[in-house]
Nucleic acid binder design. Structure first.
Lengths: 343, 343
DNA sequence: AAAGTCATTCAAAGCGCTTTGGAGATACTT
DNA sequence: AAGTATCTCCAAAGCGCTTTGAATGACTTT
């Protein structure tokens, strides 16, 4: 069913039918209703490509997901972020276009996407320090919003980020207040900007209390259950093991819990654990009482807001770069307790 | 940079430039090289919408993800499936278009997608029994591949599925061979076809050995850590608790492990656990030795193969429906052992 | 030398929509 | 009654590409 056929069927011009369906005022209400009814009945939906060509807008947003070739791993938060963003898009009548790209050929892919013009904007995932994509997209004049931030990038750009610094400072302080002095950090890969920020604020919180950093208590790996288990097991078998762990994801924390139990210790009593919790749908942190004390920030909500921000940016191209920061809540679970007293 | 500008720049017609870039033979090699060089330098990529309009092909595949409004949850395997499919698409020069839809308005969305013509094919996720989408897409004449199968749908259609029946029969038999008689099943929601199949084969394996089904040992929930923990805790406190668990996902199994430990029991000795393992990137089942005995089948690989199958279907529209079945491997970890002997 | 082939190239139509710049009909002024 | 404003509606151009059908010139063939 094309506009042409529909208009012939109605004995109207394509102009009138188009205007009737798109809500223009130069059409009588009677005609509009007649047109809408027929469109419904004949299941007419305008051809998106033709519409895009004519209007110059694709009504689609691109998400470019970096896939490191070494790890062949997709960040597990990605599914929830997409779910959030997707719901915002469908409300606004936008499509979501996803491209995977390995780190090598980022620039080419971004250039292609922009040249091909089948998205009106881009969400940049997984920013790193000095991320080159920000300069590139600015130069290519493509609206974009970064999920996260990129330290050391000094041109202005739009972003939406969890306040990782604040969250990890609070978490570290919380453990310090409980008397912990040997606090381990199981961080994500630190070329990722958020991981870099988390380490910085962990470090500064310790130093503010005059506690020297111990590199043996700081790990930076992919955030998997196994890595949490391995790192924690190793640290727990040290001469002076940590009394608390600060981890970057629920999955890592689950690995830490396993290591604690394997070492014959009790979580929340012998060893405390705080984790960041992205509030993933399939990985709820307990039901009534949270299991892990955690800094919680819904990545799904972040997806919604990032999408909305980008859509606003596209609608009003003159407004400059926008920022949004999301504060994580510190929720108290059963995984933390006072540092054990040594005789 | 448009074709028109490029051709003016080269003093050639649009026809010739288009043909040169698309590999048609009616162009001299010298001209072709000149055109390709200029296109490269000026960073020309044809406008995807215009190309699509002219050729009638979108060079994009749609993935429609069901999001149950009650649960607001995205299946965690989705990220890995997409990663697999996406890599196949980018190799073939296709885009991936993702739509989220809540169960209510499925039909309308599918009709719209087909009418709007901005995808050349669709991957159907999460088939249920009697899934109405299969009939609908067949009627709308849109190429599609189902990830999974739909029992009770009798029209032919293309699908790719893990052999869930075989996997769960083997897993159940494995536990039976170890002497277990009270085997619990923590299944996914059973309106999903794969969950239905899994239960059927679990049940038939038990019955084949003359063991009556105990409804108290069969749960069907969303596959979360919490649900695994809650179901297992409840069952372990029964008068006659199960000596083994069969779970539908690693995440559930992790919850079961927690319940076992919380009950003061040892996994692999007091209680055995077998799980299905989708081989997700961020949830590896151990490193050298698997933690859980599991039926393993990479959902990422399934994504690659489903995408390839659909692309083949689109390229050769005359071939009838195609099927692909993926066998899960049974891998032995430390979570299983002989049934404990009661005095 | 005329006719036929072949290799290159081009002008123009068409994909399905939006949008510009009227045109015709009706209602309102004076 | 003519003049003007207001409603409705339409024909046609244009978005950036592919593709058809034809033209051009060089080279063979008769």
């Amino acid at each position: 069913m094309s506009l042409k056929k529909l208009s012939e069927h109605l004995n109207l011009s394509q102009t009138t039918v188009s205007r009737a369906l798109n809500g223009y005022p130069e059409v009588s209400e009677k005609t509009r209703e007649r047109v809408q009814k027929a469109a419904q009945e004949l299941n007419y939906s305008p051809n998106a490509r033709a519409k895009g060509l004519a209007t110059g807008r694709a009504h689609a947003i691109g998400h470019v997901i970096p896939v490191s070739t070494q790890h062949e791993m997709v960040n597990p938060v990605f599914g929830d972020f997409i779910a959030g963003a997707g719901s915002a898009y469908s409300k606004a009548g936008y499509e979501m276009m996803i491209s995977l790209v390995d780190d090598q050929q980022q620039e080419k892919l971004y250039r292609d996407i922009c040249a091909r013009r089948n998205v009106d904007g881009i969400i940049v995932h997984g920013p790193t320090m000095n991320d080159p994509r920000i300069g590139l997209l600015t130069e290519l004049d493509m609206p974009f919003v970064v999920h996260g931030r990129a330290s050391n990038v000094d041109i202005p750009y739009s972003w939406l980020d969890t306040n990782n610094s604040r969250a990890f400072r609070r978490a570290t302080d919380f453990l310090l207040d409980l008397g912990h002095r040997r606090i381990a950090l199981l961080n994500g890969l630190e070329f990722m900007d958020y991981a870099f920020r988390r380490r910085e604020s962990y470090a500064s919180a310790l130093q503010k209390r005059g506690i020297a950093l111990d590199p043996a208590l700081m790990q930076s790996t992919e955030m998997t259950e196994i890595n949490g288990f391995l790192s924690a097991s190793e640290m727990l078998s040290m001469d002076e093991p940590p009394t608390a762990f600060l981890t970057s994801s629920m999955i890592t924390a689950i690995g830490v819990r396993r290591a604690i139990q394997a070492a014959g210790l009790e979580m929340g009593k012998d060893v405390s654990v705080i984790t960041h919790d992205d509030d993933l749908g399939y990985l709820k942190n307990g039901h009534d009482v949270p299991i892990f004390t955690a800094t919680r920030s819904s990545v799904r909500a972040a997806g919604v807001r990032a999408a909305e921000l980008l859509l606003r940016l596209i609608a009003n191209p003159t407004t400059g770069p926008q920022h949004e920061i999301i504060e994580a809540e510190l929720i108290i679970g059963t995984s933390t307790g006072p540092a054990p007293q040594h005789p």
